[in-house]
């Protein structure tokens, strides 16, 4: 595991429970009956393309939106009938950094602290502390409109932590962030979980859900189409893709049969590139050995994480609905066709 857990919830009850959540916007069904159960002190990942209903689910759970049907409890409180109590224990960081651009970093956080009932001096101290923690101390006195995208995101997250929430909703916390800021964000999430916070995050990145979440639900068209631990999901979908291109196109057929034999699944062939989803990274050396024995010169061989699209294809038989949904964003090799990313991708597993 990548993180340690200190579950502080004494009741051992789930932090979030949702049953049959339905939400329609006119003709569009955003949620078509969502069931969730998130144990306290864990990270739950909602994985899906744009328009899958992730944001709507978060908005319902964070009391911003009333569901048309179904119930949800957060921290044991009904989000519809006891929304004020829910708001006292949750924090929300939306997809778009919702900070007041005309206020400074400090003023933004002091405002939240004051709204939460902290005395002025305490609100200021808390703001200072959070700004330091999120590397914003130098920019504390500048108005937020001068901040970079990553800085705004950090300020937004800091704003949702002023009240020390027990349950934190992060709606696509890393979309649009550069790899470094993304790593920082992941680190923050791990620290929060270590502190006992329950986190529900939505993401379009399989890699992110894999790295952070204890449990993942894959959402498509407002429904959960698969759910389980990252390991279970990988077993079900093929977590990685093996691609082999022989130096001599004439060897393509031989490569295809060899790969099929070792992996036990029929690969797809595009030109002379043979690719197949695999669950066991040990197939890579096996394929290399067998092809070497057969005297085939391999032009390129890669083992990379499956993209969200590939997971969707495996689960639903159709690709993710949104074409703009980014493909794999790997921590250590974002571009599928970047030669430099290939060896580490293989070595990582």
């Amino acid at each position: 595991m990548l993180h340690t857990m200190t579950v502080t919830d004494t009741h051992g009850a789930p932090a979030i429970v949702a049953e049959g959540l339905v939400k329609k916007f006119g003709e569009t069904t955003a949620l078509a009956g969502i069931d969730l159960e998130v144990p306290a002190g864990t990270v739950f990942g909602l994985l899906g393309p744009n328009g899958a209903g992730k944001t709507t689910a978060v908005r319902v759970l964070a009391t911003l939106l009333a569901a048309d049907a179904g119930t949800a409890l957060v921290g044991g409180y009904d989000v519809r009938h006891d929304s004020h109590r829910v708001r006292r224990i949750v924090g929300l960081t939306g997809q778009y950094a919702s900070v007041d651009e005309l206020l400074t970093g400090t003023e933004n956080l002091v405002m939240i602290g004051r709204l939460l009932g902290l005395p002025r001096s305490e609100a200021k101290a808390r703001a200072r502390e959070l700004l330091a923690e999120f590397n914003l101390a130098d920019a504390a006195g500048r108005s937020a409109k001068t901040y970079s995208g990553g800085m705004r995101r950090r300020l937004d997250l800091a704003a949702s932590l002023v009240g020390r929430p027990r349950v934190l909703f992060l709606d696509e916390p890393t979309t649009g962030l550069d790899p470094r800021s993304r790593n920082d964000m992941w680190e923050v999430v791990r620290n929060l979980v270590a502190d006992g916070v329950t986190v529900l995050l939505t993401t379009q990145y399989l890699e992110e859900a894999d790295l952070l979440a204890d449990d993942i639900a894959v959402v498509d068209h407002g429904r959960i189409i698969a759910q389980g631990s990252p390991e279970e999901l990988k077993k079900q979908t093929g977590a990685q893709t093996l691609a082999v291109r022989p130096a001599d196109p004439a060897d393509t057929a031989l490569v295809e049969t060899t790969v099929a034999e070792i992996v036990g699944a029929s690969p797809t062939v595009a030109g002379n590139l043979v690719s197949v989803r695999v669950t066991d990274p040990a197939v890579l050396p096996a394929v290399v050995r067998r092809l070497d024995d057969a005297g085939v010169t391999v032009g390129e061989i890669t083992l990379r994480s499956s993209s969200l699209d590939e997971v969707f294809l495996a689960l639903t038989g159709h690709p993710a609905t949104d074409e703009s949904a980014p493909a794999t964003v790997a921590q250590d090799g974002p571009a599928d066709d970047d030669p430099a990313a290939r060896i580490p991708a293989a070595a990582r597993s």
Binding site: T6, T8, R88, I89, E133, P165, D195, G196, V197
Partner: peptide, 17 residues
């Protein structure tokens, strides 16, 4: 609070009631 890098410890969280 627990700063990144420090040993995690229990932090008093928002009041549940």
């Amino acid at each position: 609070t627990t700063l990144p890098g420090q040993a995690p410890g229990p932090v008093e969280r928002a009041a549940p009631t």
